[in-house]
């Protein structure tokens, strides 16, 4: 009888460095999700009137929330960089015979990211 080696269902990602890195990438999605919930809460607060919105802002300024926001910001940066890095694999672009270099495709994502950020900051009245 052929021998089937056991596979750990719970700790498989510790077996290999690449698996662990992948799981970290996946874990960052939790923070992306959390931030989305936060946004929804904010929109809800705006819809519910000035009082609710003030309360929302107050909550945001609490020390615990600030820590969470900073962690989320860093993690989302990591998330974005990790996925931008692999976009050329998912969306290769062929121009004539040659493929557009991966760096250009990933770079374009960064450019768009920065532009969007600038627009958001502009709308928020930073400039």
């Amino acid at each position: 009888m052929a021998y089937v080696r056991p596979v750990s269902k719970t700790c498989w990602y510790l077996k290999d460095r690449n698996y662990t890195i992948h799981m970290l990438n996946e874990l960052t999605s939790v923070f992306v999700g959390l931030y989305a919930l936060l946004l929804l809460w904010g929109i809800g607060a705006v819809a519910s009137g000035p009082e609710a919105y003030q309360y929302f802002l107050k909550c945001l300024a609490s020390p615990g929330m600030l820590v969470l926001l900073w962690v989320t910001t860093i993690v989302i940066f990591y998330h974005a960089i990790a996925w931008f890095k692999v976009t050329p694999k998912a969306m290769p672009i062929q121009k004539g015979e040659e493929f557009v270099p991966g760096g250009v495709i990933a770079g374009a994502h960064y450019v768009v990211w920065i532009l969007f950020s600038l627009v958001v900051l502009f709308l928020a009245g930073v400039f």
């Binding site: 290999d16 690449n18 698996y19 992948h22 996946e26 692999v86 694999k89 998912a90």
Partner: peptide
């Protein structure tokens, strides 16, 4: 496929 990229490595 969850895109671990380990196949390509």
């Amino acid at each position: 496929c969850s895109f671990t990229d380990t196949c390509s490595i």
